[in-house]
């Protein structure tokens, strides 16, 4: 859905944590900031992250450690019924 808007489905960034990588990407694509962070500076709460094949469920996803070659997938939190 975010790719529908931005036209970009993949981006590469550098850093030791997800927070670092997002800041690196946002520095080059400032329009993404509003989509990842709310006015209080928090990661939007309906966004979920998958590191490689692993759901990342910590309270602070920005602390997710990353190594070169890791792949993080951004998805909507979805429920149904």
């Amino acid at each position: 859905m975010l790719a529908n808007l931005t036209g970009v489905s993949e981006a590469t960034g550098e850093g030791a944590t997800l927070g670092d990588v997002l800041q690196d990407i946002i520095a080059r694509a400032p329009g993404l900031k509003t989509h990842f962070f709310d006015e209080a500076g928090n990661v939007r709460r309906h966004i979920r992250f998958i590191k490689n094949e692993e759901f990342w469920r910590t309270a602070d996803p920005l602390a997710m450690p990353l190594s070169p070659g890791d792949r993080v997938t951004v998805i909507n939190s979805v429920s149904g019924g």
Binding site: L5, T34, H35, H46
Partner: peptide
């Protein structure tokens, strides 16, 4: 609800740029 709100711009109603 997930990604917040913003403004996109278009010239032709086919290509939209945030």
């Amino acid at each position: 609800d997930v990604y917040g709100c913003t403004v996109v711009v278009t010239d032709d109603f086919k290509t939209y740029t945030p």
